[in-house]
Design a protein around this nucleic acid. Structure first.
Lengths: 214, 214, 214, 214
DNA sequence: GATGAATGAGTTTTCATTCAT
DNA sequence: GATGAATGAAAACTCATTCAT
């Protein structure tokens, strides 16, 4: 807040306007997809003139990229924070799942957009964007992996898989459960109880003796 | 093979042409994305006239849908077969992961296209297509869930989570590992070794005593 | 009939085929208009291959022109015959109106097409066609005018207008009444009773005394 | 004129541009026919970019419909006005024929277009347009019929035919004479002298005694 | 001689971007 | 600085015509 005070009013106004444009664009892109939204629509929805939008963003592509980077910022900050707060690895992972759930819920409309960017969409809209977002995502995964690693080193966890693989597994499961919940919120359990997800990794599926036999 | 012989030559020619068009379209779509490829480009790449393309596919959308339904077919058949072959639940699930890996590898470019264009598959290219694909996917998930259920009922598996959740978890993990492999084939273990994935679910992460304490 | 016998079978077959194509084309053109009918449709409807159609007609335009000339032949023969049969001018004009009505009824589907050709459709589909049809139409009008002229010369008719104008008036009235009848056959009187039309010209609308005052 | 002053300049400019586009379209359509004119040609002729044309008219069809509705408006207003001004029925009908002639002359090119494209106005370009135009035309005919009816009721006219038929007859005659004039303006009498047409209905063609014998 | 698959020029329409006001 | 009208390249798609079989 004190940080905002430092900015001259001009600057603050510009930032607010920028956010309003981005908000309108997010709505539209997530409703209809990048290619089915025209700059004119964004102008109408945001109640700015189309020329004004081009004052803020050099092109439609740049607007989209800004959007995704903003979103990615929000995501990775929340997840990084969750993974560094809490006393035990278990606590940290629980926080992670909770934070992921909350961020999903808070950004329901853009989540799909975001997931497609952090997945295999190589040629996506702009190659560069892709790389940036994936780098950040990679950072979160590595942090998560280090939590698993620490849990194993402190003998809290069994060494059942490479920590990075565990991180990847946990993340993908969370995404899958969250997407289910997005589609049918009442039928799927996710966001209230992180343990539904954690247990799948935490508890052993097979009895120790039989597992050994496999 | 003898089956092909049965088709009149005309028919065979048409099928081959159709495949050539689809192949050109896959190449282009996965290089540049659905919206950045024009029908004229597909015509050029496939060395047919644009009108000929339209003899085979009523619209660009239908061409895309054919691609995706073909892909979905291949997955559905391979995975259903895998889940119904094998003596034990463990065997079936291992087959499942293997089949998924193989089908993925065999169809890398269409998959890349699917991932980039489906964007979480809501506004996708055509809503109808999406529904069809999801129905098939749901069928596979339910089949997988029934394998887990059977394993639990026969006391082979611990009852650590709802079978459908286990199915979803396994599937999403496989997808995540496959996407990694897609990005850097040499660094990632998956498709060769299904146990890397299966172990995460099969072995217990926590000691029994500590798990109880949670 | 004896004339047809003279033609070798080959020739007769060709003529029959030609008629079948023209019949299919008439149906389609009158249903949808020249520009909304494709050669493929004509091929399908007539059950000939498209290549075969091009054996008979050099182009779509030529097909259309043949159609119109055939139609125009039928029309002008019928009308010319009517105007030359009958003892008195009144009889001839009555025959004319009757013949026009019958030809309309027999060719309901193409009438509109034909009327638009014999009207102001200068640039129509092919300039040349237009001229030919209009020349024939002009011939009928002149024949009709000569009947009026004869009626006046024999003191049967009052000399109320130039014979050609009378011919034009009668013809346009007949067309207008027939078009009405085409649209709502039960509401309009036309083809049964030619006198509904003839009376408008035949009887005086104004009393003799008042007419003089005008 | 003062009315135009009231419009903001922006609005006036837009209207002028719209008119320029319509004028270019009329020229081209009446030169070559609706289907033989491309939107790009209209853009070139009117010296606007193609996109600009689409700012004013949603589609080629709408552009055409605007043209026809404008024409229909002009006729409807002129004819309605003519039929309601003048002291006697005779005066009104004379006004009607004059107004029809004048409007025809003022709009020769659009009329030529209408005649060629409407093809009897059934499958026309757009069914809806046709309905609208015919409704207006019907209104004029009914108004004209009421003038005839009034003339008969006031014993001014003989009751020689149903008033609606008289209206239809007069109108179709006017159309026919006007079309003649359209083709060869110098040879045909129409627009200067309405009585050439009116007399055909007004004066009795046959002597009273002979008419009775018919 | 008949066939109908293949052709590709030409059509309508959209929309990111510019720039005069 | 903001505006939004004008632009025109580029896209999806149609269909008269040809010609190898």
């Amino acid at each position: 807040m004190s940080q905002e005070k430092k900015l001259p009013r001009r600057e603050r106004d510009r930032l607010r306007q920028r956010q309003e444009i981005l908000a309108a664009a997010i709505e539209l892109f997530s409703e209809k997809g990048y290619h089915n939204v025209s700059m004119n629509e964004i102008a109408e929805r945001s109640e700015f003139a189309i020329g004004t939008i081009y004052k803020f963003f050099k092109s439609k592509e740049e607007l989209y990229n800004s959007l995704m980077l903003d979103l990615s910022d929000r995501f990775h900050q929340a997840l990084t924070k969750a993974l560094t707060q809490g006393d035990s690895p278990v606590e940290k992972l629980r926080n992670y799942i909770r934070a992921k759930g909350n961020t999903f819920i808070d950004n329901v409309s853009v989540i799909r957009l975001y997931l497609s960017e952090s997945r295999g969409a190589r040629f996506s809209i702009k190659a560069g964007l892709d790389a940036e977002i994936r780098t950040r995502y990679e950072g979160v995964l590595r942090l998560s992996a280090s939590v698993f690693k620490h849990g194993v080193e402190s003998k809290l966890f069994n060494d059942i898989a490479h920590p990075y693989h565990l991180a990847l597994a946990l993340d993908s499961m969370a995404n899958a459960f969250l997407l289910r919940w997005l589609e049918a919120p009442e039928e799927h359990p996710y966001p209230d109880n992180p343990d539904v997800i954690l247990n799948i990794i935490f508890k052993g599926l097979l009895d120790a003796s039989e597992a050994a036999a496999q």
